[in-house]
């Protein structure tokens, strides 16, 4: 297990290196001068030079590359082009919105979708089971922002039950108001993530149900639900862990769109605003961090999978 862990961490570091390089080369080596595209037309050559200097694009590409990797390794993501504040500080300032949003949607969708998915599998021939699967399919096909707008229209505009968007200026100092403004975004993200999860859980359950050991359990007098309860968790765990990894990553990414729908000052809106303002250091820093998070989640998933499935432990 330890040697596996070491190998897996080495792999993660390699992936982070590749991801960092990809971010760099996508932006610098492809044709076009970022400094020119970043500035409005008609800027003076001096302005362009200044930007070039700040971006470091006046140095040779390889030197820039080495510098970027060195900065990444030391956790320095540079400064914003416009506010001149360190990128890392700006990102940290947005986490109190994004992390609660992503995590509560993640947890809620597990609580809601796992039982529904199991039900849809056990009753896959029944009317209710088919209805549930169809709804989930619809939830996957609908754009998440459309769901968000409809939720706003229904709950905030028609019923006037909750604020349609925004986040208190004082942040979490007023927890009541902060939670209120997160209810609809979390609900929307939960609908989207939950739909995906229902499909995955249903398919994982069907997989367990089709196994011969379930038939053995039934031949010994277990009812179908009890047989599922006896064999499902341990046999479905590896798959479910993998699904949860995907889900956690996509909850994080979902916040980008959700924060835009509900005008929340989180990481996603920072990213979007920076893309529109062409604040390159913030964009590449945020993108790199999000990608790194996804890769780290992948590592955790692989390790946990090994822990829950002893058959994987022996093999390389």
């Amino acid at each position: 297990m330890l040697s596996y862990l070491i190998r897996r961490v080495a792999w993660l570091i390699g992936s982070l290196f590749v991801a960092g390089s990809a971010v760099f080369f996508l932006l610098r080596v492809l044709p076009g001068d970022p400094a020119v595209t970043l500035l409005a037309v008609g800027s003076s050559p001096d302005q362009i030079d200044a930007i070039r200097h700040q971006l470091g694009t006046d140095r040779p590409v390889l030197a820039q590359y080495g510098h970027w990797l060195g900065d990444l390794a030391t956790g320095n993501l540079g400064d914003s082009l416009f506010t001149q504040l360190p990128v890392l500080d700006q990102i940290a300032g947005r986490l109190p919105v994004t992390v609660p949003l992503a995590l509560s949607a993640f947890v809620l969708s597990i609580i809601v979708a796992v039982p529904i998915g199991v039900f849809a599998a056990v009753r896959r021939r029944g009317l209710l089971g088919v209805a549930v699967s169809t709804l989930a399919q619809l939830g996957i096909a609908l754009p998440i922002f459309w769901v968000g707008i409809m939720v706003v229209w229904l709950v905030a505009v028609q019923w006037r039950a909750l604020p349609p968007g925004g986040f208190p200026r004082t942040g979490w100092q007023d927890p009541g108001a902060a939670i209120q403004s997160l209810v609809l975004p979390v609900a929307t993200l939960t609908i989207a993530q939950g739909s995906v999860l229902v499909r995955y859980v249903r398919s994982a359950t069907l997989d367990v149900l089709s196994q011969e050991y379930v038939r053995t359990a039934r031949s010994l007098g277990y009812s179908l639900p009890r047989a599922l309860w006896r064999h499902g968790p341990r046999n479905g765990a590896a798959t479910v862990v993998q699904i949860l990894g995907i889900l956690l990553a996509s909850s994080l990414l979902g916040t980008v769109v959700i924060e835009s729908v509900f005008a929340l000052p989180g990481l996603g809106s920072l990213l979007l605003a920076s893309v529109k303002a062409r604040d390159l250091p913030i964009v590449q820093g945020t993108v790199f961090l999000m990608t790194a998070t996804v890769l780290v989640v992948g590592l955790v998933v692989d390790v946990v999978q090994r822990l829950v499935d002893p058959r994987l432990r022996g093999s390389a």
Partner: peptide, 24 residues
Amino acid sequence: VGVIDIVIAFPTLLLAMLLVTVYG
């Protein structure tokens, strides 16, 4: 497989944002 894993970790939306920042 490694490259594929990384590209999968690099979601479409983020890729698009990177490209739009530079190329509009």
